[in-house]
């Protein structure tokens, strides 16, 4: 009896993970970037790179999004807003830091009005370096993030079962 229940749970988990891997909806938030990275994100969404191939869709509402794409260093003004948007997203949620500034503060490091990289404020799952990173690098980063989810969730599954 118990064995068959575990089996059902495992199958359900596999199906859920498959759904999550194949349909990451993204939300784009500029925490204080110089706009270079934002332009590259927009370029990633154009027909030339066509991220709909991977099921990635840009969403307007944090409630719908699974992946938060952050660009730029966290400025003191953006800090509260970043926290609020992160809190508005529903579990499971992932954060991708795009560009050198989002990684470490970049050229804005040690400025009086910035707090450094995104990971000073919220947990980050993937880092994409570059100033700004090319669209190929952004796509690569998101795909790597998604494929790295698999073993982690498998582990979780083992723990719960």
């Amino acid at each position: 009896m118990d064995g068959s229940r575990n089996h059902v749970i495992r199958t359900l988990e596999t199906v859920k993970r498959w759904g999550r891997l194949n349909s990451p909806w993204a939300l784009h938030f500029n925490t204080g970037s110089c706009n270079g990275c934002d332009i590259e994100i927009l370029a990633t969404l154009t027909p030339r790179y066509d991220v709909e191939r991977f099921g990635i869709k840009l969403q307007g509402s944090p409630r719908h999004a699974d992946v938060l794409l952050c660009t730029g260093p966290v400025t003191r003004q953006a800090h509260d807003r970043l926290l609020r948007i992160y809190a508005q997203m529903h579990e499971p949620k992932y954060v991708v830091a795009i560009g050198s500034c989002a990684l470490s503060g970049g050229v804005f490091a040690d400025c009086y009005n910035t707090l450094g990289g995104i990971d000073q404020v919220i947990p980050v799952d993937a880092y994409i370096p570059g100033c700004p990173p090319r669209p190929e690098a952004i796509i690569d980063g998101i795909v790597k993030l998604l494929s790295s989810l698999q073993p982690v969730e498998l582990q979780m599954e083992k723990e719960t079962v």
Binding site: K16, G19, R20, S23, R53
Partner: peptide
Amino acid sequence: QTRVGPRWFQPLADVIKLLAKEEV
């Protein structure tokens, strides 16, 4: 729009993901 477009199981994946997401 001269894009490749979604894979054939995309609508199914979207629905499963949404159903498995936290609801607030």
